[in-house]
Computed example of a mutant assay.
Amino acid sequence: MKPVTAAQPGDEQGAAIEAASMRHAPGLALFWSGILGGASWAAAQAGVRPDLLLLVVSDTTIWFSVVSSISLMEAWVKFRAPLLERHVGVDLGRRVFRGQYAMEAACALTACGLLWSAGSGSVRSGLDALPGGAGWLLAGAAAILLLELGLVFPALDLRGKVLIASSAEPAELNPRQQAYVQELQESTAGGSVPPPYVHLVSVLLAVAQVALLGGCLWRLLLSVAGA
């Protein structure tokens, strides 16, 4: 593919289009942290019993739903659409996953805060307070999230940038899109591309995370039901 020509004066040439298009993640993290944290605080103040179990169940249910619906369904279904060009799907996926990780971070932080409060200032004590080892399943899911945020998603994100920069056709783009692709070409030029197996690692981690969150939910619900 030939390099994209620079946009004409008056277009958004030189603007940080990529950075601007990714600003939704912090907003989502703050929004969901406020919703989950506020609901948890209100429930605790109202004397919901048992406080820790029901609140962690609610938080973990949202977390489980986000991972299973996006990582294990939306991403796979999306690329089966015949009219969706691969670079368009990848560009969309980068934003969806960034939003997903923002919501996951909000869930993880809320759970951490609940456990810290229940453990009188010790998250470990809070984990031990959850029945049936559910707390350590939740901790395992949080550890996977940290691994995804620190290593896996940055590698996938870089692969996505390279794919978009190399496969988008300039003739089919408007000036703003041309400037965006040019920005990606410049940011990835000369750099190494993460190996393809990073996609498999991502899927395996998502499956493991869903299993851990599902196991945590099952044990918590059994405890709430008195089983």
Rank of each mutant, 00 (worst) to 15 (best):
P9Y: 06
G14H: 01
A15Y: 14
A15E: 04
A16Y: 12
I17H: 07
A25K: 02
G27W: 14
I35E: 10
L36V: 04
L36W: 01
W41G: 10
W41E: 11
A42G: 07
A43W: 06
A44E: 15
V48G: 01
R49D: 12
L54K: 07
L55H: 12
V56F: 05
S58V: 10
T60Q: 05
W63L: 09
S65F: 11
S65M: 06
V66K: 01
I70H: 01
L72S: 07
M73D: 08
P82A: 02
G89E: 02
R98E: 12
R98Y: 01
Q100V: 15
M103G: 05
A106V: 04
A108R: 08
L109I: 06
C112N: 03
S117A: 15
G119D: 02
V123G: 13
V123I: 15
L130R: 09
G135V: 10
G140V: 07
A142Q: 08
A142K: 02
P154G: 12
A155Q: 13
D157L: 14
D157N: 15
D157P: 00
D157R: 14
G160R: 03
K161C: 13
L163Y: 11
S167P: 00
P170L: 00
L173R: 07
L173W: 02
Q185H: 02
S187D: 05
P196D: 06
S202W: 09
L205Q: 06
Q209E: 15
V210M: 05
A211W: 10
G214I: 09
C216N: 04
L217S: 05
W218G: 03
S223R: 11
